[in-house]
Design a binder for these strands. Structure first.
Lengths: 156, 156
DNA sequence: TAATCTGGTTTTAAGATGCAACCCAATTAT
DNA sequence: ATAATTGGGTTGCATCTTAAAACCAGATTA
């Protein structure tokens, strides 16, 4: 049977996963953030099969995460560049990286040291914050119930 | 051929995706954050096939994202609960939700209104911040080159 | 005691993936 | 000028994964 798709889910996380939630797409976006733009470079850096890479790039372009740009005057050379939508995945990628560094550290390697160009200092650990800027956890949040505004149901 | 796995990748994002990067795993974690704990509830809420749910729950337990807890005195009733590692995916899920709400809003539905229990105010949009707490984008960061500390290569 | 609930496993058909081979236009080397 | 290489694909095939439905066994409920 076909893989299930969530295009029409009423959950925005499911819809997001529909666009970048497969094994390769987020890694492609990550490498695009690294600066990779060419088909062959993605292929070599990721070790992905060419047909799969074609499919994923096309899907990411369809979804507006990447745009395909002709380079080299005579056509037939392309670059895949992040759109604003694609660059906006930065917090997702960083959150995932920090989670991975914390919980599955490479035994022999230091976690990636990512720094701010302006200050030269490492970036902060990404966190969910309340209106006052205080970091909060999943236990600190609720979804106000539209029908009875007083209730504080546990939810994400 | 089998799907490629990234257990041993030297990229922590790849290793993270290996644990929660398939179509269902993050949705299971999301629903666990909602409060879902029982097999049947996951199954009904997600509309996932039972064999796939079995497999994913087992994998999440193996990876330490969930723990399987016997409830009901005589065994054979279980709950799947988030571990600290699992709860620590909160920023990832929120970042993904906010990205989805921004770029693929449901046509007819308001985005999820997530609030802080203590203040009753909506949570902030999650962002990558530099050491001074200023939000930064992918263009503002670099990875210091260990061999020549002065260089500012563009990287994530 | 019968029916139902819970948490699975098995079977089957259809999709998705990885790999290698092939293709063709543009570029580079000889 | 011709040959070899590069870039960006497509095609076919074998294998793996998935969805759906049937089935199952131990508890619980009627």
């Amino acid at each position: 049977m076909a893989r299930k798709r969530f295009d029409d889910s009423n959950c925005s996380v499911a819809r997001a996963l529909n666009q970048v939630g497969d094994w390769w797409s987020l890694l492609i976006v990550l490498h695009a953030m690294y600066g990779t733009r060419r088909f062959v470079d993605f292929q070599q850096e990721l070790g992905i099969a060419k047909n799969i890479l074609c499919d994923r790039l096309a899907r990411l372009v369809d979804n507006g995460v990447l745009k395909k740009v002709e380079v080299g005057e005579h056509g037939s050379r392309f670059e895949y560049r992040l759109t604003e939508k694609g660059r906006d995945l930065f917090p997702v990628v960083i959150a995932l990286r920090q989670w991975g560094d914390k919980w599955n550290p490479a035994p022999d390697e230091a976690p990636l040291d990512l720094r701010d160009r302006a200050t030269g200092q490492p970036v902060q650990t990404i966190q969910v914050r309340n209106a006052d800027g205080e970091p909060i956890t999943v236990r600190d949040v609720f979804v106000p119930d539209a029908s009875s505004p007083g209730s504080k149901k546990d939810s994400v």
